[in-house]
Design a protein around this nucleic acid. Sequence first.
DNA 1: CGGAAAAAGTGGCATATGCCACTAATTGAA
DNA 2: TTCAATTAGTGGCATATGCCACTTTTTCCG
Lengths: 151, 151
Amino acid sequence: MTKGALPGLTLCNNATLRRAGRKLGRFYDDVLAPSGLKGTQYGLLYQIHIGSEPAMGAIAEALIMDLSALGHTLKPLIRDGYVETFADKDDRRVKRVRLTPQGGLKLDEATKLWTIAQQRFEAMLGKDQAAKLRAALDEIATLDFDMPPAR
Amino acid sequence: MTKGALPGLTLCNNATLRRAGRKLGRFYDDVLAPSGLKGTQYGLLYQIHIGSEPAMGAIAEALIMDLSALGHTLKPLIRDGYVETFADKDDRRVKRVRLTPQGGLKLDEATKLWTIAQQRFEAMLGKDQAAKLRAALDEIATLDFDMPPAR
DNA sequence: CGGAAAAAGTGGCATATGCCACTAATTGAA
DNA sequence: TTCAATTAGTGGCATATGCCACTTTTTCCG
């Protein structure tokens, strides 16, 4: 009976998304485990890597996450020496972020594992399905939920 | 420049799912805010509601979440008097969960708000798109990620 | 029957995320 | 120039989730 239809809340978009997120997150986490990074941390390192010494705010915006949440999530990575921050030359309010050499190596190491997870997942769901899913998710990410409260 | 294409990690299924999850989660949380419940808590109350005094393990399985995580998430709901637990008559290891009368009322109240969130979201993404998305997400939720480690 | 193994939760520890109240640095007028 | 808004982050507090080490019950055998 453990197999079969999923009971309940199959109607709530939010709950369904969260549930799938827990499942997929654990999978990526498991595969990335040998590197010592969680899926979230891998994504964050990658985002920093592809940016040009991005400011905290720029990262938060790209990842659609709260600025303070980003700050918290960054701490273990800084503590472990994968990331470092420095003040922007022209605006001292701005704090920029970059990978340390160690962080770069760790990212490379983790990318090998990530590729495995990515391939295994896409082999199961289907490359097309996965691409369509990401497209739909990206669409949600760009939606503008602001009409009612007016302004 | 704030608008436009999403930079980076649009390739990682996990990162994309998490990002959309943060966005959608905040939307549902905002709409549910007047009830004092978060989207996660609403989903949990609902899951308990549709079950027959479900055991912790049953809930965790349905929501695909860690049993201990469920225990932690349940605490604030118990503290606030929306949920109560009791030992199973036949197996004292099992702890069953049910809504209190207050919890039932709160669920009804929150459901009105949830309906608004759900409708607003589906109006933006499209009912079809939303249904397809949930189907895809449910498929992920049922995938069996266990081959490599063999057994 | 009696002890090993399995099943269901709990507690502690760590990361992931958000919101709110603040602080510091800039920008914009008057 | 000077002081009120705005912008970028930080810290504290609370929930969301996981994993691991245990404790308590049951179940299973020999």
